[in-house]
Simulated assay, not measured.
Amino acid sequence: MSRPLFGSHSATIVGPALAVRISEIAETPELPPTTQSEGPCHHSRMRPEKLCGVWWARLAELRAAHLELLDTDERRRRAGFARAADRDRFTLGAALLRLAAGAHLGIPARRVPVRRRCPHCRGPHGRPTLPGEPLHLSVTHAGDLVGVAVTAAGPVGLDVEQEVELDWRRLARRIQAPGEADPIRSRAGFLRCWTRKESVLKATGDGLRVPMSEVAIGPGPTLLRYRSRVRPPAHLTDLPAPPGYAAALTVLAPAPPRVTAEAAGGLLIDRAICEKTRVREGRRMVTGHPAGGG
């Protein structure tokens, strides 16, 4: 059985394009370390179409050996990030995605065939897919927190945001849908609304090409309306998050899957990764900085 995901810290559930913009406004605060899972995919005896697994990791868990899990396109995309922190978030997300999918499929992470293709420009930056495999994937990051979701239930969208100073009242007027019964009255309420809608847009594959004001969320949370059409069969979940963060998940499926969330330590320190890490120079991050708590 997994130990608590975020230790003994309680979190008020309030809810990645926003994460990128917000991260440029304020410094990332120090957060308490996560506790690690006993091991990957301990729910795998369930029918896969009834399960959605979510894994969370901290940037301090990144190791040099994780970079070797990236393919050529991912390495090229990683090199395009100007800031070291952005390169680390991308590397950790790509590695964790392969490790989590490999745990579901029962194959080594290096053999997981992740593909990213934008449906509009055909560039290697679309949402991740697994050609020939019945799994749906989503990746998100904010601050020093990186998350992935893996499920066979249906298309999935995962979003995490970090609380920072911003004009949430002005943004709230832009993202609320006409007729939404739950007005945004606080910063926490704004993040709750944003993460729910962002997770829906990631699950549908539309992303921020669709204005959030065209996504109507009701109590539960539930998806009431999408782009003025009858809503798709969407199941929304507010996820536990550490203090200062908010997270939400959407799965498009006929029936709601069982959602499980855990720290990714058991995946990130699998035997192959650990063996490669021990023979390299120290336990250093991809950027060359000490790995902190190790």
Rank of each mutant, 00 (worst) to 15 (best):
R209M: 11
P119C: 02
P221K: 13
L18S: 03
V148Q: 02
A263C: 07
A234Q: 08
A153C: 12
R196Q: 15
L145F: 08
V164S: 07
A247P: 08
T34Q: 13
G102I: 01
G157S: 04
D73M: 05
L252P: 01
V156N: 02
H9A: 15
T260F: 05
G154I: 09
E165V: 12
T140G: 08
R115P: 00
R45Y: 03
G132A: 01
G244H: 03
H104Y: 12
E281T: 12
H104Q: 08
L166S: 12
A203H: 07
K276L: 08
A152L: 07
V259H: 01
D270C: 13
T91C: 15
P290H: 09
A95E: 06
G265L: 10
G132R: 02
T260V: 13
D167E: 12
A17F: 05
A95M: 04
I217C: 04
A203P: 08
T28Q: 05
R21D: 14
L137V: 06
A84R: 09
G143L: 12
T28I: 12
P221F: 14
G220M: 05
R284D: 12
A60E: 14
T129Y: 00
L249D: 12
A241W: 09
L252D: 02
L135P: 07
L97F: 02
I273C: 11
E38A: 09
A264I: 08
R284Q: 10
A142E: 05
L31Y: 06
A64G: 03
S2A: 09
G102F: 00
L69W: 01
G244W: 03
I107S: 01
L105D: 07
G143K: 12
L51N: 07
T34Y: 15
T91W: 01
W56M: 15
H42I: 11
R283A: 03
L67F: 03
R283D: 05
W194D: 15
S44W: 05
R45M: 08
A82N: 07
A272W: 00
T35P: 09
E49R: 10
E24A: 15
R280Y: 08
V139A: 15
R110K: 05
R225T: 10
R117C: 01
G293Y: 11
F190I: 04
P113M: 13
A85T: 03
C41V: 05
G147E: 11
L51P: 04
R258A: 13
S228F: 13
H66S: 10
R89Q: 10
L67A: 09
V200S: 02
R115W: 03
H141V: 15
Q36N: 11
P243V: 15
G244L: 00
A253E: 07
R117Q: 01
G266A: 00
R271G: 01
A172H: 06
R284F: 12
E24R: 14
R83A: 11
R45T: 14
V14M: 07
P242M: 04
V148P: 02
K50C: 14
V14I: 10
R187A: 15
G294F: 05
D270A: 13
R185T: 15
P242Y: 00
V160R: 03
A85W: 05
L191V: 14
R87F: 05
R58T: 10
I107A: 02
R196E: 15
A19K: 09
